[in-house]
């Protein structure tokens, strides 16, 4: 249980940073795209292992996720990243399907990456998650002011010595690494709601970026913990429950706000 609690804490930390970056970057769909790019990397590692070439999923998933995230960033303007995301999503997903179609008898493994399982996190997965979290917290902390300036004023940031293309690449790389780090626990398909719903809720209330990070962290923690404890009672996937809770919470808050207006 300690392992699960530590994982939950680290996942919430990554959700707070990358979920907010994705929402502020107006690129929330990037989470889905990156998750499926990572899936292509996982599929390739499974394909290679079926040929006897043992290759850990994390390295290839990270390479694919970062490469396709940067592709999306480079092929679009700051204000219109949707097309770039769609192209990189289509490209990586088609690669994933091609790799998967060549693999026989590994459906259970693929399933675990698609939907994730918080109870099946291995020591190795936890190590990846810890390493990714520490790296991202450090990078985010060091570049915090410059990232805010770039996100707020992408055109004027250059005058403050910020290279816009480099900073956009840093943002999408942080998002890519975060998604890969949680793919085993929450899955490629559910990553979107786990990352975006808490940040979207925070956006409705936060009066500062720091508040937004804290609110996102707390909501992610609550959603994940509720999912985990409910799954101990009911035979339902913890990650699916967590994603369901986070998304429902967002919808409830959204409609309450509309109703109050």
């Amino acid at each position: 249980m300690d392992k699960i609690l530590l994982s939950t804490f680290l996942i919430s930390l990554l959700v707070a940073i990358s979920g907010n970056l994705a929402v502020f970057r107006k690129a929330s769909f990037l989470i889905t795209s990156v998750a499926h790019s990572a899936l292509a990397g996982v599929a390739l590692s499974l394909l290679l292992s079926s040929f006897g070439i043992q290759q850990d999923y994390f390295l290839l998933a990270t390479i694919f996720a970062i490469a396709f995230a940067i592709l999306a960033s480079l092929t679009s303007k700051f204000s219109d990243i949707d097309t770039g995301i769609a192209i990189s999503f289509a490209l990586s997903m088609s690669l994933a399907v091609i790799f998967l179609s060549q693999i026989r008898g590994m459906s259970a493994k693929i399933w675990s990456f698609l939907f994730g399982d918080l109870f099946l996190i291995t020591e190795q997965d936890l190590l990846y998650l810890t390493f990714s979290s520490i790296s991202i917290v450090l990078i985010f902390g060091l570049l915090y002011e410059k990232l805010l300036l770039f996100l707020f004023d992408p055109e004027g940031a250059r005058v403050s010595g910020i290279n816009p293309k480099l900073f956009d690449a840093i943002i999408v790389t942080i998002i890519a690494i975060s998604v890969v780090a949680v793919i085993r626990s929450v899955g490629a398909i559910l990553a979107y709601s786990i990352f975006i719903a808490p940040s979207a809720i925070a956006k409705e209330f936060a009066r500062s970026v720091k508040q937004s990070l804290i609110i996102t962290f707390v909501i992610a923690m609550i959603s994940l913990m509720t999912g985990i404890f409910t799954s101990l009672i009911l035979p339902i996937s913890a990650s699916a429950l967590s994603a369901f809770i986070a998304s429902t919470l967002y919808l409830v808050i959204f409609y309450i706000k509309i109703y109050k207006k």
Binding site: F24, K26, E155, V159
Partner: peptide
């Protein structure tokens, strides 16, 4: 050089106070 961009190019999704906008990047 200081550059004042068109307001339409700013990203208003960020919850930044006036103080923060003014003091960003030290």
């Amino acid at each position: 050089i200081s550059y004042v961009p068109q307001r339409s190019s700013l990203n208003l999704d960020l919850p930044l106070s006036v103080e923060k906008v003014l003091s960003m990047n030290n």
